[in-house]
Nucleic acid binder design. Structure first.
Lengths: 351, 351
DNA sequence: TTGGCAATCTGTAACGTTTCAGTATATTGA
DNA sequence: TCAATATACTGAAACGTTACAGATTGCCAA
């Protein structure tokens, strides 16, 4: 008995990184007691609990993730699933930062799970669920009837979506009110006398495609303006495709005098196309665009912008998944950001 | 004996996800044999090996990461350490995709470890090393005397840096030849008759700051042009700061007639500042800028650009860390991308 | 026939954690 | 005084994997 103690001591003190065994030796307690003391279990004496926690803090004890994961199945990992070639650049960067910001105060790590054009979007989801590689998942490019959301719901994998679904199933989401954005954009253009409007929409299939379309259409009829069809391209197309298509439509007799664009990079292409056709922004045509960082006004000050905050989306999504994992009701973890005002260029204040 | 077998069977078949035990039962072999067979150990019979691997593939066996990690210490994780508020937007997005691309074919996961302005850059590194949370690390914003690189070298943590160090220590890196970029930019501007050049440099402190400065200075003296000091701002400053500072310097009697800019977003600010001062790009001043996606020519076609491929950087860095983990010599895992030509706008080919 | 030796295969222990089923000790009620 | 009970703690087992130290078998030389 004494002998075993001694062996244990040596093992414990020889270790590089402290484990429960180390703490057990230092406090003279059993491993079980230490484990329970660290998580404030009620059957541990108040003083013992304090003592263990003090020592743990002193020597910088951190639970071994592999040990916890093997024993409990909890990974302490949140996975952000991203499309490798269709995702908006600033979206990736900002949402990662937003998620990180929230996870930083928790034991959770962020792993990025990519999938590419060629792959089935379900593949990374199935992988995560089957291998139990994450405690929670965040997905983007959400569809009205999203097989990924359905699958995760069926398999009990906590998740949050960027964008809403429309399947009659309730789950956490964060969304930007694209209906409001498109309406506000149309109203603004109408107020400037623009009457023939074109919409560069999100890719059909995603939920916010119809939100945007509806907002656009609702406001069109409200203000009595008409639509110039522009639905052979979406913001998923390349800069070149959008540019060329814009130039084409602008060379027609009946051409748009206003554009609503759902993404900043696409807006650059639209403007380029407008100018390719020999027309001038602000004179012949106006453009309202969403943007996620304040760059469009540097590009052309005639542009009208509405800001969408992806970093906020990231934090909200992270908070939602954590909440869900923590047992909160999915319905209470949904947020919708109302679109801000359409903003014209305002010159920077010189200091 | 028979009884134990039976118990094992039941356990094995009741399981959701197959483990070595499941495979052992199905093949009638021992767990050890299965484990060894899966990794092509020589002391396993050729037929047994094939049989085990076949069954494993059939039932979709995937090693449990926690088990492996606990036993071996190998995490199968590569960590990308990013600064949350100073990193270039497209850099984050592209490098993540580049890394993912390479890791996708391996058992490795990518975890993003962020740190913010307020934090010591060493903190995430120490965390990773102390907790053994990753098998390899990728860092950016590399400094000539980089404490993170030194620390990881001392502690045997495999890593690769984006950018070189200058400490006489050899480690994997990937870098863009910023000396060549700055020289080429200066030569191009000189060839257009520009004589008073300003440089918007990377932040002082980073290794490629001096590379850029030296390339700029070397070419300046080579072509006999002069420098207009512009070192109160760097690409780490805000758009507004750069814009204002540019406007200031452009309103002076002796003002730059050429700019070299180390980042695309900063170039937008420079151009805005130039125009704030009532001057015209292409007439009064020319600007050569690095960019990582082909957007600057949409912005102003007078801009001259040099492309830097961050996605390539990501893949190269990932390949390097994996190589290092695999035992390759660090010196063989270094790559330097020569800067491409300075490119003027060329109109898109209409299809 | 025997010993030796490859060639294959196997059980046990350990990684660090949590859970289960306890065991001591002190405290209470009668 | 005794049993019952609450309090505070503990060892053993298990999660899935790999490394170590065997064990079994067949074959060949002597």
């Amino acid at each position: 008995m004494d002998r075993r103690r001694t062996e244990k001591n040596e093992e414990a003190s020889a270790q590089g990184r402290p484990t429960l065994k180390t703490l057990a030796f230092m406090t003279g307690l059993g491993v079980t007691t230490v484990s329970r003391a660290l998580k404030d279990a009620p059957e541990i004496g108040a003083e013992t609990r304090r003592r263990v926690q003090l020592v743990a803090k002193q020597i910088g004890y951190r639970p071994n993730r592999a040990g916890v994961r093997l024993r409990t199945g909890r990974t302490n990992v949140i996975s952000l699933v991203l499309n490798t070639d269709r995702e908006i650049m600033s979206f990736v960067s900002d949402i990662i930062y937003g998620v990180s910001e929230v996870l930083a105060e928790t034991p959770y790590h962020l792993i990025v799970t990519p999938y590419s054009r060629s792959q089935d979007p379900m593949e990374p989801i199935r992988y995560l669920v089957e291998t139990g590689s994450a405690d929670g998942v965040i997905i983007s490019r959400t569809q009205p009837n999203d097989p990924r959301a359905r699958y995760m719901l069926e398999h009990g994998m906590p998740f949050a979506t960027h964008g809403r679904t429309d399947m009659g199933l309730v789950h956490p989401y964060h969304d930007f009110d694209n209906h409001a954005f498109a309406s506000a954009a149309v109203r603004r253009l109408a107020s400037m006398g623009r009457r023939r409007l074109a919409l560069l929409s999100p890719p059909p299939g995603l939920t916010y495609y119809s939100h945007t379309l509806n907002g656009f259409a609702d406001a069109l009829s409200e203000v009595g303006a008409s639509e110039i069809p522009f639905n052979t391209v979406s913001i998923d197309h390349t800069i070149e495709q959008i540019r060329m298509r814009t130039a084409q439509v602008m060379r027609r007799d009946v051409r748009p005098d206003g554009f609503v664009s759902s993404a900043a990079a696409a807006t650059l292409a639209i403007v380029a196309g407008i100018e390719d056709a020999g027309l001038k922004l602000g004179r012949d045509v106006d453009v309202v665009s969403k943007q996620s960082s304040d760059l469009l006004h540097l590009f052309r000050r005639e542009l009208l912008v509405v800001n969408e905050n992806f970093r906020l989306a990231g934090s909200e999504l992270a908070r939602s998944v954590l909440g869900l994992i923590g047992g909160a009701a999915p319905g209470s973890l949904q947020s919708l950001v109302v679109a801000g005002d359409v903003q014209a260029f305002s010159p920077p204040v010189l200091v």
